[in-house]
Structures are given as C-alpha cells and as structure tokens.
Nucleic acid binder design. Structure first.
Lengths: 140, 140, 140, 140
DNA sequence: GTGGTCTAGACCACT
DNA sequence: GTGGTCTAGACCACG
C-alpha cells in the first residue's frame, strides 16, 4: 500500500480516499480488519498522527468502526458502502461533465471523447492521448 | 465576474482556473486586456495581493503577458491556448476515468453512465441523479 | 548568513541567488535541511513573507524540496545541482563575453584582460584595476 | 535599432546601456547627432516618455549633450567616452570573476573557461556550450 | 514548529 | 494608473 502524494492536497485526505476506494471496489470487504495505525504509518512512511487523523475522519463518515481493544474494521453495513460508492461516482461524474462544459465542450462531444478514451485504453494502454481532445468543437 | 469560493482550495488557484476557463472557452480572446489587479480585487472583494499572486502564476504558465505600466493581456499565441485546453480536458478525462475504474466501474459502464447523465441533462436539468450509478455493476 | 542588499534587485531574488550559490559551491549539501522561514527571517532581519517568496521560487526551480510540516531541504539530486552550476556559470560567461564584445573588445583582448585580472588578484588583492582595460584596443 | 527587453530591468536602463555600448564601440561617434525622441520612440515601439527618461539619465552621466533647438549629440569629449568604456568593462570583469569565484571556480579554471569559450566562438559559432563548465573543479 | 495562504496597507518604478 | 515588491500580522492545516 503505497501512494504517490500530491502536494496540493492534505495527505490524510489522500489516504482517506485511497481507503474508501479500496472498500468501494471490494478490495476491502465489509467487516474486514484494518491494519493498526502504527503498522500503516510504518508502511507508508508517514507520521502516525496523520494516519490517526485519517481514521478519525473515516469514522465520522461511518466508513470504519472502532471496536475498543480489538482494532478498526470496515463498516459491515453494505448499504453504507453502496451509498459511498454512489456519492463518489456522482462527484466524479459531475466534476467531469461540469468541467468539460466550462471548457466549451458540448454534450455530444463529451460522450464521444469518453468513448474514444475508453476504447483506446481497452485496446492498447499507450495511446490514450490525442483523438477528440483537439478542441475544434467550440464553435457549434 | 464573481466566483463562489471553495474553502479547500486556495483562492488564487480558484481564480486561476476561472480565468483559464474563460480564456479556453473563448470568453476572453487572445490579446484581450485583462482588468487591472486593483479592479479585479475590488470586484471580487479580494485582497489585491491575492489577485497579484494569481497572475504571477498565470504568467509563469504563459497564459498571460504583462506589458510594463500598461497592464496584462491574454497571451496572443493561439497555440498556447489550444494546448491549455487540451491539457485541462485531458486532466479532467483521466481523473474521471481513472477514478471510476478505481471505484470498480468497467469501461462500458463508464460510457453508459456518461451517456445517461448527458441525456438527462439535455432533457430537463433536474434529474441527473439516479440511473446507472446504482452500483450493481461491481460484480463483473 | 547576512547579505548586503542591492537596491536595484528585489530582495527575494538576491536571497535566491545567495542560496543557490551556497548550494552550488558545496556550502549547502544535497539533502541538507534549510533553516525555517521564520528563522531565516529573524536572522536576516527580513519579513518572513519575503523569505517565503524566495523559497517558492527556488522550489519552482527544483533547487529545494518541501516536506510538509517538516521543513525544507536542498534537493537530493546531485545532477540538478550540477545543472544549476553549469547554467549559472554559462550565464556569467555569456554575459561577460557578449558584453565585452559589444564594448568593442576582441576575443584575444578579452582573454588577456581576464588573465591579468586574475593574476593581479592572486598576488595582492588591491590593484585589480588598470592593465588591459585602457581601451586602446578598439581600433582593430 | 531594436532591442529584446528583459522584464527584470527597467526599459530605460536597457536603452541607456544599448546607446552607451553603441558609443563605446564606435558605432556612434563623438559629436554624432542622435535621432529625436519621437523618432526613436516610434522605431522602438516605446512610450516617448521612456526615451525621454533615457536621455535625461544619459545627460546626467554626460554621455550625450543637448543643444537647444538643434537636438541631442554624443558628447564630443573622447576622454569621457574612454572613461565610460573602462567603467563598463571593469564592471563586467568584476561581476564575472566575482560570480565565478562564488560558484566555486578557481582562478586558473576561470581563465581556461574563458579561453575555451572564446576559441570555440572563433572557430564555429555553434558549440560554445560544454567544455570546462562541467564543474568538477570545486574540490581543489 | 513547519510551511501556505490571506489581508491590509504602503512604497516604488514604469508608462 | 499599472504592476512589483515589501512589511506586518494573522490564521490555518499539517506532522
């Protein structure tokens, strides 16, 4: 478990998202035990306080639960996880579409751009760039 | 020109993006004069130094040119603007697709989600939620 | 660490150069911790924001790295430092030779002027003036 | 007469130096008439006030003389011009040698670097880079 | 304690 | 009037 950190975002937020994605994608299952703060801190070369803060927030969002003396566990409520997944996907979607529209892309362009990108990625994994992004689609 | 500020991101970055979007979308044309620092500061109710910082960065990115004592201007190089548009769109695209994949969505799901969202938005502008985001597509 | 400031150049640029010189000359080694902004500001009797600005630029040039909450460090990439040294020396060299040529000096004159200056400086450190600079070498 | 301007230095100073170099190098001879402010301003695409300021300073330095109603002329005092040449060359020399020393170069290195640069420039005008600037000369 | 950001207000050089 | 710089002082997030 190692992340490349982006300096513009707090580390604890990046770890939070990382863990949430692991849960949502099924890599961490509901009820799974989460490694201890010390363990994670050592693994990720990060101050334990930062990990602590991460879980403090995840607990507030009810994504993880603390069982006193036993450790921390992924919430066992499947509905909660579904909710998180929906929320994260919705955020991504809105951010993307809204962003593209602000750049001057029209809805049909957005769809074809996504199609192309996905297609390119499916075939080879090298030429995701290029294609519809040429930007000549502002005029319509 | 008024922006709603998001507390998680520095103001100067938000203004930067705002201006870049205006340029890329054609609202600000190459060679256009940009209002003075003081003017913008007054308009946006923000400290002039913050605006100054904004343009300092935009200049580093060659989005904007300063003519001493005269004011600031949108770069007259159309190619630069195209490049920025491409870059911003590419970032949005990658962030979206990569994020969705990490959430466990598959490429074909991603495409249909985008299609639906765009369609929903085109018809009415109220019911973008719902649809494919239900998350039952993790199993594949 | 105290600098005499030249009024024609922004302080932050002068400090930048000062630090770059310390690094390039080996006084500051790759990986070394750099004193905190507040510390330097106190030492140099300068506003912390000005120091901050200095490092903001040095970081852009990848001369310095920030570790969040820990402090700033000289880049650990030796190659980067070599590159900076080369660049700074090249700039000095070009500026000098180009300048002398524009003043009408010929290449062989330039070499002998440098030789003399260096020789004079090596013997005593008082009579660098005089010698070849008499300017009778315009006619050629 | 067109200069590429460096944003860090006031334009009027850059023009000043430009003119001084023309005089010192013999391109402008003592007693030569200097084009009018309007003329120069138009030629160089610069605000006439800036040109005005330039000559105001040059006059203070007694490099040019104003003859009322007739125009501006290069000073006819040859000794003055010699003095300027010496001063400018001395400045360049000192700035160069001092700078190189601060970068960790030793006197003998400085001489050979200049020799090489001049030699390279004399032969072809393409490969001035490289050579002694490799910087391995800090250890001695 | 560290850097990052923002505000407020001032001065300066340039056009 | 324009941008550039600097000061003073404050608050915040991070580790």
């Amino acid at each position: 478990m190692s992340i490349e950190f982006d300096n513009n975002l707090p580390i604890y937020l990046q770890i939070m998202n990382h863990i949430k994605r692991q849960i949502v994608s099924g890599l961490l299952q509901p009820g799974d035990k989460i490694p201890s703060v010390r363990e994670l801190a050592a693994e990720m070369q990060i101050n334990p306080n930062t990990i602590q803060r991460t879980f403090q927030e995840l607990e507030r969002e009810e994504v993880v639960e603390t069982k006193r003396g036993l450790g921390r566990y992924v919430t066992s409520e499947g509905s909660k996880i579904m909710a998180i997944k929906k929320e994260m996907a919705g955020d991504l979607l809105h951010q993307f579409i809204h962003g593209m529209q602000e750049l001057g892309f029209k809805n049909k362009d957005i769809v074809s751009i996504v199609k192309e990108a996905v297609a390119a990625e499916t075939e080879s994994s090298s030429n995701q760039k290029g294609g519809q992004l040429d930007g000549n689609n502002t005029e319509g």
